[in-house]
Design a binder for these strands. Structure first.
Lengths: 250, 250
DNA sequence: ATCGCGTCCTATGTATACAAACTGCACTCA
DNA sequence: TGAGTGCAGTTTGTATACATAGGACGCGAT
């Protein structure tokens, strides 16, 4: 089995980290729940040394919180925390867009971004839009954002964006899939695509402030999506982020 | 010796982390230099397990970089990286100020900030300003920024700000002390103090956009300070940040 | 009955032993 | 002579044993 081989090729530390993250995001470990090293050893089947490293890494990912007296607990987020994280990401991506615009990017380096934009256009144009297109959109959208951030050519900034986006609810498309069946969903995708077009145009024309503003606005779509997702409770299983909420939505 | 007692009360992990950080910031470990676990063991005198944890934490702090083949190297920063980090911090603190303004802070919670502002005023008013006052300013300034950030009441944002500020060159007063002897220094402090006053006023009057704008502008002082510091090479020993520069200033 | 103290137990901190992988070097074969 | 292979040394990855600290429970005394 190639899957199992692949699993074996990674270090125990990484394997433990993946297993624990999965447990947290799937809700099997509840927010606020304490998790001891020994528990983690039982869960993952690896020994304390790599488990401990995995726990530390998950702590700085933001999924765990160190308990002063020792050990870790699954971090619990309020709805406000999630909204703030979205705003935070928007602000950072806005800065990235401004850097890209102000520093000037060559026509050549803008090419992949434009191609990605065209691909997204293609997907969004469908009416009604298929679930497969939604799925493809999520992937392509992530690519668009990654390309955009790289255009900032700022290692410290990209590092922070990656960090913030690691939290499941702050990543750009976190809520898109969960509501692919909702009537409002396609509309939101269309608006998002408008933003994408505008930011590329602003960068091309070196309008830093405009590029920044539109990326900030863009992130508010995610907030809108979150509210939609909470209101329509049918697809919560697609929203690992909500497993982290302090008072779980039911 | 109380110092030694204090040292003993902290964990080996923390002690190793402190020792290694000091080595890096003081330039005894050069940017780009590889550092193996065993070297770190020799340096710190603690065993591999806590040393390894300390290395991981320093990587997360941004001072070290993991080498794909294993081990770590001291991260090297370009001048651009430093300027970007400053801008990044300014953007985050700007967001914090906006949150504080928009969400409304009670008169009571604004009190400590205002006291701090008054203390800073007192220090800055001196002319000529003493070196001791410079030193006190650095401490008080850090307190002012911390209070300000807390007023955002946003845990995710505060977390990110702390992270970014951990890099020695991104923290607010990183360059102030280094140039306390320069004629321009007092002037810069005065401008910074103007910013402080404006941001408090903006928050009090719930002007989010204004609060944000002035904090962004405020961070540009740090960039100005950095350029000054590089130009006047006399005080580089006070600038641990510059130890991390890819091509060291001489 | 409640408060306080002591003991035991469990969890974490630390050290070290062992295994496996990678690097560099030397030797051999084409 | 050059390239490839194998061996040795070093380094990281992993497991586990030991030390210690903190918490829980129970017992006794007031």
């Amino acid at each position: 089995m190639s899957e199992r081989d692949a699993e074996r090729s990674v270090s125990q530390t990484v394997r433990a980290q993946l297993a624990l993250r999965d447990m947290i995001l799937s809700g099997r470990l509840r927010p606020g729940e304490r998790i001891s090293e020994l528990q983690a050893v039982d869960i993952t089947g690896v020994s304390r040394t790599p488990v401990r490293l995995a726990l530390v890494r998950l702590e700085d990912e933001g999924l765990l919180q160190a308990i002063p007296s020792g050990g870790f607990m699954v971090k619990a987020f309020t709805e406000r925390d999630i909204l703030d994280s979205i705003e935070l990401r928007g602000t950072l991506e806005g800065l990235a867009a401004r850097f890209a615009a102000e520093r000037g990017v060559s026509a050549r380096s803008l090419e992949p971004l434009k191609e990605c934009l065209a691909d997204l256009d293609q997907l969004v144009r469908q009416d009604p839009i298929s679930v497969e297109a939604f799925s493809a959109y999520v992937t392509m959208n992530a690519r668009f954002h990654a390309l955009l951030n790289e255009l900032s050519a700022s290692a410290p900034l990209i590092r922070e964006i990656d960090r913030v986006s690691a939290l499941p609810f702050a990543s750009p498309s976190a809520f898109v899939m969960a509501q692919s069946a909702l009537p409002e969903a396609h509309q939101i995708l269309l608006i998002g695509q408008d933003h994408h077009r505008i930011v590329v145009d602003a960068i091309e024309n070196r309008e830093g402030a405009r590029a920044e503003a539109v990326m900030r606005e863009h992130s508010r779509l995610a907030a809108r999506n979150l509210r939609l997702a909470i209101r329509n409770r049918t697809h919560l299983d697609l929203l690992p982020a909500l497993a982290l909420l302090k008072s779980p939505v039911e």
